[in-house]
Each structure stands twice: as structure tokens, then as C-alpha cells.
Design a protein around this nucleic acid. Structure first.
Lengths: 218, 218
DNA sequence: GTCTATACACTGATAGAC
DNA sequence: GTCTATCAGTGTATAGAC
């Protein structure tokens, strides 16, 4: 009996391991080639697993894609929570912008797949955006509106501010190749990237009148 | 003889007309489906021209795609010139941001194709970016750096500022569907869009210390 | 310049031996 | 759980009649 249990556990662990291998490979290919440009054999090659085995773990390409998208969303949701009532707008936004910039640098693939998905009309993610993303956004809009009402920041449109932060930070993932070419075909150095982060934070904080330094100075 | 000339002119005009028809159709499909997702028969359907005729005008899918990309670049280059020495930073940037926002609203397809192309690694456009875009950018960086050196604006990194403007304005084209869903499944109204434009201009100008009002106020 | 028919390659997916 | 063989369907591209 324990032998049998071990066997099942072993099989389950093989499954987990291979699924992870395939999902990681799929992320690479989907990000670089888009949905239609991705073929199961390319994923198989990337994962170093025979093509038929991919189908064993993920019966269809659509299902594989859905899992990759879900993975990305899970990752974002669990790491996107910086908005609270304890800290100042400047502190919260600084942390949020920096975190999003760091994602763009350390995990650009997810951002690119998401961008692709939105460009194609959010075919697989309409429901997800309509629920989770919308809820997340509406909550944050309320918080920012409170800052405005309290006079903590200038009277700006919260929605536009969030979109600005999303667009600017994700640009460093989605348009990484463009940035690289325009930087003399060299990836941004750590120093250059830190400069970008600092500038974005400075411009946005000052732009909405949340800059602590400014307040002290005036 | 004149009859012959007329015939040639007529054929040329048919060619022009059909090429335009096909390019416009191709823009729609490439923007919505990506490069691989676009098939010649879908383009043919969209253009209401038989599939084989597409091949008559554009021998391969690659060539058709290159022409679409060229079209987009031409359009941008001829309408992107707002940086001069006559106007103030605030005036120049206001006009530039507004123009880019209007492009995103009136012609989002080109922006989406471009985004897709960058995500895929700029396979067809590396040279173009390396020449034309880089030249354009380097010139603008010099101008903005002059503003900084003159004390017209805060000491910010010009490159980061331009990327911020590109990202934010193009977001309204590339992520149009996301914005729509998050707006209760309704396209942004003209009023909402004007609010966004005004907010973006305000935040960026104030953020870099170029806001005329601020100067007057202080 | 228009259009039908078709060659040829590739992809998603399955059957079935191991 | 792994892997080979294979099929049906689709896509690029061309030949050739009109």
C-alpha cells in the first residue's frame, strides 16, 4: 500500500515538473511569436520534450495558452498590492512604480503576452479583465480620489494616472527591443535602468503634486 | 498612340487603386491578428478581392507586410515634427502629446501593428529603427537637453521623458480594448478622451517643471 | 488584369506501440 | 508516462485559362 501511494506521489511530481517545464517554454514562445505564431513543436523544442507529450499534459493549444495567461495573472495579482491607508501617496506610488518597473525587467515575457492579448482584442481574457482587473482598478481609483478630495495631491483623474503608470512601466517590457536598438543595440545597463525608474517616479510625483520634497521646499 | 498611353495610365490607376484597397485591408487584419495570424485569404475577404489577385499585387506575404509597415512609418514621420526653437517647452510638448493622442484615437491600427512588431523583436524593422527612429530621437534628446541646460525645465533624463510620452499616448491605441472593458465595455467618449489628454499634458508638464502656470504662480 | 485549380509544406491533433 | 507514425485541415504560393 505505501508503495502504491509513493508511486502515485511520484507520478504526480513528474506531472508537476513537466507541466512547469512546458509552461515556462510556452511563455517564451508565446511572448516572442504571438498566439498563432506559436506552434506546439516549437514549444516542445524549447521545453526539450517530445511534441506528443505536450498534448498529453495540455490537450489543446488553447488550453495551454489559457494556463500561461492564468500564470501571468496570478503572478501580478499576488504582487500588486501596495495601496493602503497607512502610507502617503508619494510612498505608495513610488513603491508601486518601482515594483512594476522591476517586473518589466525581471519578467518581461508575461507583459508581452498580455500586450499581445489586448491588441488582439482580449479574446481569452475579457472575463478576467471585466472582473479582477476592473475590481482592482475601481478600488485604486477610489483611494486616489480620496487623496484628491483630501488635497493630498492635485485634482487629477485617477484613471488617467493609473493608465499612465501602467503604460510607462510596461513599455520597458513590451518595447524592450526598441529601447535596446535605440540604446545603440545594447540592453539598458543597471545604472540606466535605475535612472529611468528614478525619473519616472520624480516626474509623476511632481506632476500630480505628491512630491514630498516639493511640499517641504515651498 | 494616345490610346496606348491612356491604356497604360488606366492600368496604372487600377494598380494604385487596388494596392491601396489591399494595404488598407491588410492593416486591419495585421493589427487584429498579428503577422502569423494574418492569412492572405482573410486580407482578400476584407479587401473584397480574390485571393490570387493579392498575390498578383504583392508576390509574398512578407512583401505585403513590409509595405504596410512602411506606410505606417511614412505617416508618422511626416506628422511628428513639433520640436522647434521658436516655442516654449510647454507649448511644444503640449502639441506633441495632443497630436500623438489624436493619432491613437483616429488611427490605432498602425500603432498596434508597430507594437506587435516590437514585441516580436523588430524582425522587419530593425534597420528602420536603427536609422530613422534613432535619428529622430537623438535630435529631440538634444533639444530637450538644451532645455535642461538652460534651466527651462527640471534636470530630467530626456530619453526617459520621450519614452514616457510614447508609452502613455500609444497605450490608448494598443490597449484600446482593455480601456474599453475597464470603462464598462464602452469606448471612451470624446469628453473622457479630452479629459485624459488634458490630464496627461498637465501631469507631464508639471512633472518636468515646464508648466507655465506654475512659473507664473510662484 | 482576373480568377480557378492545385501543388506542396506545415500544423493541430490522435492512435497505438512501448 | 513516453514516443513514433500518421491524418485531416489549412496556408502560402503558382500555373495557366480567360
Amino acid at each position: 500500500m505505501p508503495l502504491n501511494k509513493n508511486k502515485i506521489a511520484h507520478k504526480a511530481s513528474i506531472r508537476k515538473k513537466n507541466e512547469r517545464l512546458i509552461l515556462n517554454a510556452a511563455e517564451v514562445i508565446f511572448a516572442a511569436q504571438g498566439f498563432k505564431g506559436t506552434t506546439i513543436s516549437k514549444v516542445a523544442q524549447q521545453a526539450k520534450i517530445p511534441k506528443a507529450n505536450i498534448y498529453y499534459y495540455f490537450p489543446t493549444k488553447d488550453i495551454l495558452y489559457s494556463h500561461v495567461i492564468e500564470d501571468i495573472c496570478d503572478f501580478w495579482l499576488q504582487s500588486d498590492d501596495f495601496f493602503d491607508d497607512l502610507n502617503s501617496p508619494a510612498e505608495i506610488l513610488t513603491r508601486y512604480i518601482n515594483a512594476k518597473m522591476d517586473f518589466s525587467r525581471s519578467r518581461p515575457l508575461g507583459s508581452r503576452i498580455w500586450a499581445n492579448e489586448m491588441i488582439r482584442g482580449a479574446q481569452y481574457t475579457k472575463d478576467y479583465v471585466n472582473k479582477n482587473v476592473k475590481n482592482w482598478l475601481d478600488d485604486r481609483i477610489k483611494i486616489i480620489q480620496r487623496w484628491v478630495d483630501n488635497g493630498d495631491i492635485d485634482p487629477i483623474d485617477p484613471r488617467t494616472l493609473i493608465y499612465m503608470i501602467w503604460a510607462t512601466t510596461q513599455h520597458y517590457a513590451d518595447f524592450g527591443m526598441q529601447i535596446k536598438i535605440l540604446n545603440g543595440n545594447k540592453q539598458l545597463s543597471d545604472k540606466q535602468f535605475e535612472t529611468a525608474k528614478k525619473n519616472i517616479v520624480t516626474i509623476i510625483l511632481k506632476g500630480i503634486g505628491a512630491s514630498n520634497n516639493l511640499k517641504i521646499a515651498s
